[in-house]
Design a binder for these strands. Structure first.
Length: 379
DNA sequence: TCTGGGGTCCTAGGACCC
DNA sequence: TCTGGGGTCCTAGGACCC
């Protein structure tokens, strides 16, 4: 592959920072965003300010637990519409520099800066600082940027000097900068793989890089094993993908109190019908229809079951989705109470176009094939 | 009353077709 | 009267990400 300069741009404490724009009086105080902002209810922290993080509050943590750690913490409900509005603003600011941008969700992007004028000056730092300035001017928000020859290293780099950081990692920096970090910093190594690597005595990326390839392949399978080896050595050839089509759309909800499939049937049925209406509205708003309708249930012990059904034709009709969803729910075992119910529509097509495949669409693999399902990681 | 909601990708087995 | 494959679709489950 040709010479590349890839940036990963990550907004700093995005939800919390957006909230502080309209509540400046909360600046400097511990603030956590999550659920409906009521820490006695079910929900998790999505974002915490750096002041709240100082108390040990982390995203994914139960609101209740966060309130225990920091009783004076201010809790605010999530307002996705507002965050999406700022997401559009910061992405538009980046688009004034280049259109080689890959969306990675509401608060981060990859940018292929390889062809941008001046990118070879000072390893790209002036171009990156210019982007940070444009984002700040458009939104009032700071972001952190990693600059590297590929997405993998850029992603790790952007996290190294938050907030408002700019971190450049080139191939020759990998041993000193990347290898001391824990393996979990690699995008694609999650809790399960982390645990297994720890069992092998591999804690840092450098230790993983030095591990014999046959051992990794034996433990993780050929695909994931090889990918681990490449990633630990800082190698990654994935392109910046600027356009993509959705594969599925879903709605789900966690109940304030667990519900039983038989005893609480009325409430569950009403909930399922509402989820179907919502997902149908989402499909129509975005101009899609789907063939594969599925439900997802989470039991009170956190186990998840899914049931789905593929229709002869794609639909965006709430009643048709509801019929299929109820058939699926009828096949969910009523063994224990449910804490979550969801509806998903996959096999999406724009009406008029041929339907793509159902449940498991094929797209651009973020990582080499089979990076996950290889045996030791399943179950 | 620990543990949200919206996604992507991958695997595996059986059906079914050629 | 024993033995195949390849390929696709469908379904279920799981890891991981933001």
């Amino acid at each position: 592959m040709d010479w590349r300069r890839i940036a990963h741009l990550d907004m700093d404490a995005f939800y919390a920072s957006v909230e502080l724009l309209r509540r400046p009086e909360l600046r400097g105080r511990p603030v956590a965003i999550g659920g409906n902002g009521e820490p006695s209810r079910r929900g998790v922290v999505t974002t915490a300010t750096y002041e709240a993080r100082a108390f040990g509050i982390r995203s994914g943590m139960a609101l209740r637990r966060a309130a225990e750690l920091c009783p004076q913490c201010v809790f605010l409900p999530v307002d996705f519409d507002e965050y999406r509005r700022y997401s559009r603003l910061f992405k538009a600011a980046i688009a004034t520099v280049t259109d080689r941008v890959e969306d990675r969700g509401i608060d981060e992007v990859y940018i292929d800066l390889s062809g941008v004028p001046g990118i070879r000056i000072e390893r790209g730092a002036p171009v990156a600082r210019d982007i940070q300035r444009r984002v700040l001017e458009a939104t009032g928000l700071t972001c952190s940027v990693g600059l590297a020859p590929n997405k993998l290293l850029a992603k790790i780099a952007s996290d190294l000097h938050k907030p408002a950081g700019l971190t450049i990692v080139d191939e020759e920096d990998v041993p000193a900068t990347i290898w001391p970090l824990p393996v979990r910093r690699i995008n694609g190594i999650g809790p399960k793989a982390d645990l297994q690597l720890e069992e092998l005595g591999l804690r840092t990326i450098g230790e993983l890089a030095a591990a014999p390839l046959p051992m990794l392949v034996a433990r993780f399978g050929a695909n994931y094993g090889r990918w681990l080896h490449e990633a630990a050595n800082g190698r990654d050839e994935r392109p910046v993908v600027t356009a993509s089509e959705p594969v599925s759309m879903s709605r789900e909800t966690t109940f304030e109190h667990d519900l039983h499939l038989r005893r609480d049937w009325q409430a569950l049925a009403a909930c399922l019908a509402e989820l179907c209406r919502e997902v149908a509205a989402d499909l129509r708003r975005r101009g899609y229809a789907g063939r594969t309708i599925g439900v997802k249930a989470r039991y009170d012990d956190f186990r998840i079951v899914t049931r789905d059904q593929t229709l002869p034709e794609a639909t965006d009709d709430a009643a048709a989705i509801r019929r299929a969803a109820f058939e699926c729910l009828g096949r969910v075992p009523a063994q224990r109470r449910l804490r979550l119910l969801g509806v998903r529509v996959a096999g999406l097509a724009r009406p008029g176009e041929a339907a793509r495949r159902g449940g498991s669409g094929r797209g651009d693999a973020a990582l080499p094939a089979a990076r996950q399902g290889e045996l030791p990681l399943s179950g």
